[in-house]
């Protein structure tokens, strides 16, 4: 089981990176939490074929936990200080790819997750719905809106 979970490490990390809006440090924390929880709860996974979706569900919950923790931190130490974004590590990308990922990172959480899982993980609507625990129609709606918004930003590159 450990090997199977480990095999998805890169996928989980990349998903976490987008959840975290490109912040590598947060993505590493989310990935570590996800993998640790997955290994600890591996007995709960009844269908091995659903491992990837299951891992992404855990990652999504870890991200939500992280957001809750950040909100708590904001109320404790003051909004201005806590809200300052952490500096992301620079990842060398072409300008085109940077623009695409920045545009994706600017979308709200749900649209970003739906867009990422569909485009980058090639997940079906049903799989995405299971990962995010929302209805398939909600997935389709978020996906459409996300695509329209990205199209407006990225139009010159994809036409």
């Amino acid at each position: 089981m450990q090997d199977a979970v480990e095999a998805h490490f890169q996928n989980v990390f990349r998903f976490a990176l987008r959840l975290a809006g490109g912040d590598i440090h947060i993505a590493e924390d989310i990935t570590q939490d996800t993998m640790t929880k997955a290994l600890a709860r591996s007995a709960q996974l009844s269908d091995p074929a659903a491992l990837r979706s299951w891992l992404f569900s855990i990652a999504t919950n870890c991200w939500i936990d992280h957001l809750r923790g950040r909100k708590r931190q904001c109320s404790e130490v003051g909004l201005a200080q806590a809200a300052a974004p952490e500096q992301s590590d620079a990842i060398e990308l072409t300008e085109e790819y940077q623009l695409a990922l920045k545009a994706l990172d600017r979308l709200p959480d749900r649209q970003r997750s739906v867009m990422y899982l569909t485009a980058c993980e090639a997940m079906s609507i049903k799989e995405v719905a299971e990962v995010l625990d929302i209805s398939p129609d909600a997935v389709k709606a978020s996906l459409y809106v996300a695509r329209v918004r990205l199209r407006r930003i990225l139009n010159p590159q994809i036409d």
Partner: peptide
């Protein structure tokens, strides 16, 4: 759009 994101 999907392809551009996947490539990036």
């Amino acid at each position: 759009i999907d392809q551009l994101l996947a490539d990036a």
